Simulated assay, not measured.
Amino acid sequence: MTADADVAEDAPRKASKLPLVFGFVLAILGAGGGFYAVQSGVLSGSDSSDAAEKESASETSNTELDVAFVAIDPLVISLPGQGGRDHLRFAAQLEVRPDHAAEVEAIRPRIVDVLNGYLRAIDIASLEDPATLPRLRAQMLRRIQVVTGPGRVDDILIMEFVLS
């Protein structure tokens, strides 16, 4: 019996996990305190960036935005007869810089042609999926920018996109 007791006393003791747990709790508290300090503004770092943001926001609200819109005539595109959906009605406006509005207006038939060709080539299943609208929008914008030239059209705003 004494041999068993000697073996148990000679075995190394397990290391305590208390310092590890204590360090983890301190790290969580430090991260939370740092987050709070930055969000509340105690540690802003640079007051000049906040002042610059406020100044630019006031300039934007005081000055008129330099944007013009060119309306695209509503398009009605016939779809292959599947599932009761026969037509797509599409209307959009192009966001352009005011000095390029006349140029974009002059080539509007070419823009309508590009949109017609693209929308006719799209699969009906992808038209019905709401998640594909941003991708369609990006594709249409890219095609319009190629037709109009660089720097003329900034964005396309979809006013109507109805499958009927």
Rank of each mutant, 00 (worst) to 15 (best):
S126H: 07
I77L: 11
T60M: 10
A91W: 06
G84E: 01
S58T: 13
S126Q: 11
P130L: 14
D113Y: 15
P74R: 14
M140H: 07
P98H: 06
E95H: 03
S126C: 12
R108M: 12
I77K: 01
R108N: 13
P109K: 08
L65C: 13
A91E: 05
P74I: 13
L127S: 04
G81T: 10
M159H: 13
E53Y: 07
P98V: 04
I72L: 14
D50N: 15
R89D: 14
G151A: 05
G84R: 00
Y118S: 02
R142Y: 04
P134R: 04
R89H: 07
R120D: 02
E103S: 09
N116A: 11
I156H: 01
D66M: 11
P98L: 14
M159R: 10
R85Y: 05
V96G: 03
V104S: 00
S49T: 07
R143V: 08
S49A: 02
T60K: 10
A121M: 10
G84L: 04
F90V: 04
I72C: 07
A71W: 13
N62S: 08
I144K: 01
M140Q: 04
E105G: 13
F90Y: 00
L115V: 14
I72G: 05
L133Q: 09
N116R: 03
M140G: 05
R142H: 04
S126G: 15
V70M: 01
F69W: 02
A71P: 12
E128Y: 08
I77C: 03
I107K: 02
L141D: 07
G117P: 11
R142P: 08
I144E: 02
L136Y: 11
H87A: 15
R135G: 06
L141I: 09
E55Q: 13
I144A: 09
F90W: 00
S61W: 00
F90G: 00
D86I: 15
R110H: 15
A68Q: 01
I122V: 15
T148P: 11
I158G: 05
N62T: 09
R142D: 08
V76Y: 00
Q145G: 09
R89E: 11
L119W: 12
I122F: 09
D99R: 01
D129A: 10
M140R: 09
G84Q: 00
D154V: 14
L65R: 11
L79M: 08
Q145M: 14
R89A: 13
E64C: 08
R89G: 12
R137C: 15
L65M: 05
A102R: 00
F161A: 08
D155E: 03
A101H: 00
R85K: 13
N116I: 10
P74W: 06
A68K: 01
Q93C: 04
I144M: 03
I111S: 05
H87Q: 11
I77F: 09
I111V: 10
L141Q: 03
F90E: 01
E105I: 15
V112F: 03
D73H: 10
E59L: 07
V146A: 12
P109A: 14
V146T: 15
R110S: 08
I144F: 06
G81Y: 11
P80Q: 07
D154Y: 02
A138G: 08
S48W: 06
A102C: 02
R85H: 07
